[in-house]
Design a protein around this nucleic acid. Structure first.
Length: 694
DNA sequence: TGGCCTCGAGTTCA
DNA sequence: CTCGAGGCCA
């Protein structure tokens, strides 16, 4: 790069970074995720390293953060609050590189260095000043030299002691991070939503925003936590020899210190810590960016010193970002089994949370409008603890494009309007679409005329929990419906191997497998068949309830709304769904066809409609969690149900037993919380075995 | 009527 | 897994 170009780029980057600093630190309204900001910052750093003549005294790299907010008194830090360098390589190599650097700087290439390892919190750094053990002042980092006096707000954080236990030091400044736990964040937002008040975007913004609340009464309502991780100015207190001993001392004074820390030896210890924390990351009660490594010996820390504003003896080693920026290429609209129209954002593929994400649901029109996602927008995508990616929100300025369009607002697409986009018609069948008063969803009115709904209905029918027709997946159904071979459910049972073998990715062998699977499914339990029909509001459990109560399909079909409501857990809504389903001539036609021995030849396993009162586990509710060694969860479920037990999906005080297999999750915790008896696999086998003898 | 508990339905990627 | 809503009970 030519010097002139480099100079121009540096000016651009500085302006950009300053603006984001202002957004982030002063306005608490970041426009871009941290990873993106870090990247801009690193680019400027790199540029200034290559061209030292470009460095200006007011460059953002010369300071650590933003600037004090008007309204809070400025506080000059006696000992500057430095930032910590981030290792660029997020793989294990990052840890090795840091250790190698430390040994080289110390001139001891062979030494095994002792490190203190901690978590890197996603929050806001604070300096707490204690004089003779009393909290006299709390300040934010600000620009590192001067922060803001937020003592009033910090006093409202219960975890922060106003007086230290057994510390009479003339001055002891404690540094740490204010954060919001995930649970507190969720609870806070739930409450805000209930009252129709604005919610917080993420816990980090919550923490930063609360501390900077000018009204301490408002700040006090935000549930904040704090962890101490270091020291500022110290007078009249003999420093221990190591960082870990400092933290122990702070904990003894009554300050919260995070328990997830370790003292390790050399690079292997760092790698090990990084891995262990990465595994735990999702189950921690708070968000973290990564981990921090610090040379443990304070003497060695001093020897290593600083490069400009960053200590040589510490680095942050981050994890893959859970949030990333990407561009919405298009908004597709999918048609579900019930005709529900779901907008889906087609994204420029982006690596986030360990996998590449290219689709994200926008749920419905209101949700899309609330987030104001439009085609062409840059959005923040998150893939946190759970697996499913979500669009967190729109970024109104993309740093890479705003450099180009620095002067004006970027052109945006139209606000999302589902009806207008579809011209009022289902994208698959062209039937008109409706949205009932008070409903969130638009629906296609085409019913089974709509190919999309037919495909979904067939897939549902073939599903594992329904008729369990192995091999009949979405690709095959797609082909069968599109080619016109299968129009409705009975057509499935008229398929032969020769027809199937003509299809894409279908040879004789696979074709025969499908035919066999269909043959096997001709004999089905009533409950599965009812579920397979796909009646609105009738899922697996309700289908079982109906089958058990009525015993035969004929009785279910002929039942009036009143009779239907006598089934446990069936109220007016479900009863109406069932009743109307069996009044629809097309549905009756399909069912008759399926059960006609001369046509499809399905045979239902029907009963006489007695309850299961006589069974040994009648009236007991089980919840299964974790993985069992000897059988699948579904098998365990059907065994239990065969004995009259009810198997529910979540634990409550009505649960009689929780069966915990290997790697049981939150359900086990909940069981312990509620004092519900927990069985291991042996316990389950014992119950199943014993009950069989009865 | 309000506050649980459940159930139903929709969702992503390897 | 999570959200929304149906159903039940106090």
């Amino acid at each position: 790069m030519m010097t002139a170009q480099a100079a121009q780029r540096a000016v651009q980057l500085r302006a950009e970074i300053e603006r984001h600093n202002h957004q982030y630190y002063v306005l608490d309204a970041p426009l871009i995720p941290d990873a993106e900001y870090d990247q801009l910052f690193r680019e400027l750093q790199a540029l200034e390293t290559s061209y030292p003549e470009l460095v200006t005294p007011d460059s953002p790299t010369r300071r650590v953060g933003g600037r004090p907010l008007e309204g809070f008194a400025p506080v000059r830090h006696v000992v500057p609050m430095l930032s910590i360098r981030t290792e660029t390589d997020i793989s294990d190599a990052g840890a090795l590189a840091f250790d190698a650097r430390v040994r080289r700087e110390l001139g001891k290439p062979e030494a095994v260095i002792e490190y203190a390892c901690e978590l890197k919190f996603d929050g806001l750094a604070l300096n707490l000043r204690y004089e003779r053990g009393v909290l006299v002042q709390a300040a934010t980092r600000g620009d590192g030299e001067t922060g803001e006096d937020v003592t009033q707000n910090v006093r409202t954080i219960r975890q922060i002691p106003l007086r230290l236990a057994g510390c009479e030091a003339e001055v002891l400044e404690v540094r740490g991070e204010v954060y919001m736990s995930r649970a507190d964040f969720g609870r806070y937002n739930d409450r805000q939503r209930e009252h129709g008040l604005p919610t917080l975007v993420n816990p980090r913004n919550g923490a930063a925003g609360s501390i900077r609340q000018l009204d301490p009464a408002l700040a006090a309502r935000r549930p904040l936590s704090f962890y101490a991780y270091g020291l500022g100015e110290v007078r009249g207190w003999a420093l221990p020899e190591s960082h870990s001993a400092v933290l122990d001392a702070l904990a003894a004074f009554g300050l919260p210190v995070c328990g997830e820390r370790a003292v390790v030896q050399g690079a292997p210890g760092l790698v090990d810590f990084h891995r262990r924390v990465a595994e735990k990351r999702d189950s921690l009660p708070f968000d973290i960016d990564g981990v921090v490594y610090k040379v443990n010996s304070l003497a060695l820390q001093q020897e290593l010193g600083f490069v400009t504003r960053e200590p040589r003896w510490a680095v942050a080693h981050k994890f893959p970002a859970e949030e990333q920026l990407t561009v919405v290429r298009d908004i597709d609209i999918q048609v579900g089994r019930t005709g529900k129209l779901t907008p889906v954002a087609k994204l420029e593929p982006v690596f986030v949370g360990g996998t590449t994400v290219s689709n994200a649901t926008l749920h419905n029109e209101d949700e899309t409008r609330r987030k104001d996602v439009r085609i062409g927008d840059t959005v923040i995508v998150r893939r946190a603890g759970d697996v499913i990616p979500e669009v967190v929100g729109v970024v109104l300025e993309n740093p890479s494009t705003s450099l180009r369009y620095a002067q004006g607002e970027r052109e945006r697409g139209e606000p999302f309007d589902l009806y207008a986009r579809l011209g009022g018609k289902c994208p698959v069948c062209g039937s008109h679409i409706t949205r009932e008063e008070g409903e969130a969803d638009w629906r296609c009115t085409g019913g089974l005329v709509c190919a999309a709904q037919r495909k979904q209905a067939i897939l549902h029918f073939a599903g594992r929990r329904a008729m369990d027709i192995e091999g009949l997946g979405d690709k095959l159904v797609e082909q069968l419906v599109d080619s016109g071979i299968v129009h409705s459910l009975p057509d499935l049972y008229r398929l032969d191997a020769a027809t199937l073998a003509g299809l894409d990715r279908m040879a004789e062998r696979s074709a025969q497998n499908i035919v066999d699977a269909l043959q096997k499914s001709r004999h089905a339990k009533l409950a599965r068949f009812i579920f397979a029909l796909g009646i609105r509001n009738v899922g697996e459990t309700t289908a079982k309830d109906l089958a058990r109560h009525f015993g035969t399909l004929g009785k279910v079909r002929d039942a009036d709304v009143e009779r239907l409501q006598q089934v446990p857990d069936v109220g007016p809504v479900v009863a109406a769904s069932v009743y109307e389903f069996f009044r629809e001539p097309h549905n009756i036609e399909v069912i008759d066809d399926l059960l006609n021995p001369a046509r499809c030849g399905l045979v239902l396993e029907e009963g006489d409609g007695v309850g299961s009162e006589g069974l040994p586990l009648y009236g007991k509710t089980f919840v299964l969690t974790g993985t069992l060694a000897s059988m699948s969860r579904d098998e365990a479920k059907s065994h239990l149900e065969a004995l009259g037990a009810k198997v529910a999906g979540s634990v409550s005080k009505n649960t009689d037993f929780v069966v915990a297999g290997a790697e049981a999750g939150s359900k086990l915790d909940k069981a312990q919380q509620l004092g519900v008896p927990v069985l291991d696999e042996n316990g389950l086998m014992e119950i199943l075995g014993r009950s069989k003898e009865w």
